[in-house]
């Protein structure tokens, strides 16, 4: 067991992790961030996505100890009035909702790198995430709306 520290959504959190422990489990069980979720355990569905230093990571594949000192963003750390959150809510981009936080963080990563993505660029960035309810059209509309609003306030 190692004593390590993350900065989760801006707050320092001391956690304990063994060599085989997963970032996903430590975030859920010790930090209390349950917006990251297991969907496949093999990095193929995106439900466990978190941002580390702004970059998306499949936390179900990530060893917890590797991220000592890292800045970690989870979807529950985004404020309700965050433009991406607001855009997803407004376009109704959710059904069961289980996968949506992963899409939100992928959208956050995309819009930081590319504030005005084309539809094809949005598709390319989100294609590793699975929504079994089939809410893709609404999700794309949400990302476009968020990009538009963020550009307008920039």
């Amino acid at each position: 067991m190692s004593e390590i520290e993350y900065v989760v959504n801006g707050t320092r959190r001391a956690v304990r992790a063994g060599d085989d422990d997963l970032l996903l489990d430590v975030l859920r069980e010790q930090v209390g961030s349950t917006s990251a979720r297991e969907g496949c355990g093999v990095g193929a569905c995106g439900a466990c996505t978190v941002l580390v230093g702004g970059h998306s990571v499949s936390s179900c594949l990530a060893r917890a100890v590797r991220y000592d000192g890292a800045e970690i963003q989870t979807a529950d750390g985004l404020p309700p009035d965050h433009p991406i959150v607001a855009a997803f809510v407004q376009t109704g981009a959710m059904q069961c909702g289980y996968c949506i936080p992963g899409f939100v963080l992928m959208a956050d990563e995309l819009l930081r790198e590319n504030p005005r993505p084309t539809k094809e660029q949005i598709v390319a960035h989100l294609e590793g995430n699975i929504c079994r309810c089939g809410t893709y059209a609404e999700i794309i509309a949400a990302v476009e709306l968020a990009a538009e609003r963020m550009a307008a306030t920039r």
């Binding site: 349950t34 979720r37 979807a75 529950d76 309700p80 997803f88 909702g97 949506i100 936080p101 939100v104």
Partner: peptide, 19 residues
């Protein structure tokens, strides 16, 4: 009507059984 739990679903604060 918008979904009742829309924002909680988007931010991931809605609790499912494992949560």
């Amino acid at each position: 009507e918008p979904r009742r739990d829309g924002e909680a679903k988007v931010r991931g604060t809605l609790s499912y059984v494992a949560d």
